[in-house]
Amino acid sequence: MSTENDGPSSKCEYAPYTQGSAFTYLNINQSQDSTTYTLTVNGDTTINGNNYRKLGDDSVFMCSGCTDGTYTQVASLLSFDGYTASDLRITYLKDFLPLGSTWSDTINVTNNGISTTAYLQYTITEKGTSRVVNGIAFTDVIAVQMDASASVLSSTMPIGTLSTSYYARGVGLIEADQAQDTTRLIKYNIK
């Protein structure tokens, strides 16, 4: 059995992205406008020597990977409160860490044409809980809060909480709450 940070080896059960699996989400913004989309796992890719599963549809595309309970994602765009980042790699979950644990990522962002460094801090706010999403009860859920700050004139300024995401064992992302919208899983089919 391998270990990482003194944690037991993980089977990466919080992202069961097997070929052909599909996850349908409903996104509702502050104006109560809604969009439904389905992310389908369609193959593998290698980026900078790391292996990822490709997930997407006609409008959304991302790559997700997991090694020993550390889940990473390569996304095409992140935006919040005037800050944007493109082609970024983030570590969105470490399923072996206990409740209250934190980790961070450093990314490059742009705000009004000015590039700077931003810091993403993740905190496990729930672990082993249950959550009902769109009438479906999920167990063994991990919640991760993502907060951001940016380097401005040699100081680090808080940007705020970007999201709280909920991951269920055997399913993956079931809900993501952000200031501007909420995304919830409607249905899924794991192959």
Rank of each mutant, 00 (worst) to 15 (best):
S59E: 14
L97H: 04
P98H: 13
F80D: 11
T45P: 02
K94V: 13
T36D: 07
G65M: 08
S79E: 12
T67P: 11
R89P: 00
N48L: 03
S34K: 09
R53A: 07
D33H: 12
V74G: 02
G65I: 08
P98G: 10
G69L: 10
D44E: 11
L55D: 01
A85L: 01
G43M: 04
D44T: 07
L78Y: 09
N42L: 11
D58T: 07
R89D: 04
G43N: 02
S86G: 09
G65E: 08
L39C: 01
M62L: 13
Y83E: 10
S76M: 00
F61L: 12
D87P: 00
T84Q: 11
A75I: 14
N48A: 13
K94I: 14
T91G: 02
Y52N: 00
S86N: 09
T84V: 09
T70P: 08
A85G: 05
T67R: 15
R89Y: 05
T91A: 04
F61V: 11
T91W: 05
G56R: 01
D58L: 06
R53D: 05
G65F: 10
V41C: 12
S34W: 08
T40I: 09
D44H: 05
V60W: 12
I90A: 02
N51P: 07
L55R: 05
G56C: 01
L97F: 10
G65D: 11
V41S: 12
M62C: 08
P98Y: 11
I47A: 07
L88C: 00
T36C: 06
T45M: 02
G49A: 02
G56I: 06
T91K: 03
G49W: 02
T46R: 15
D33V: 14
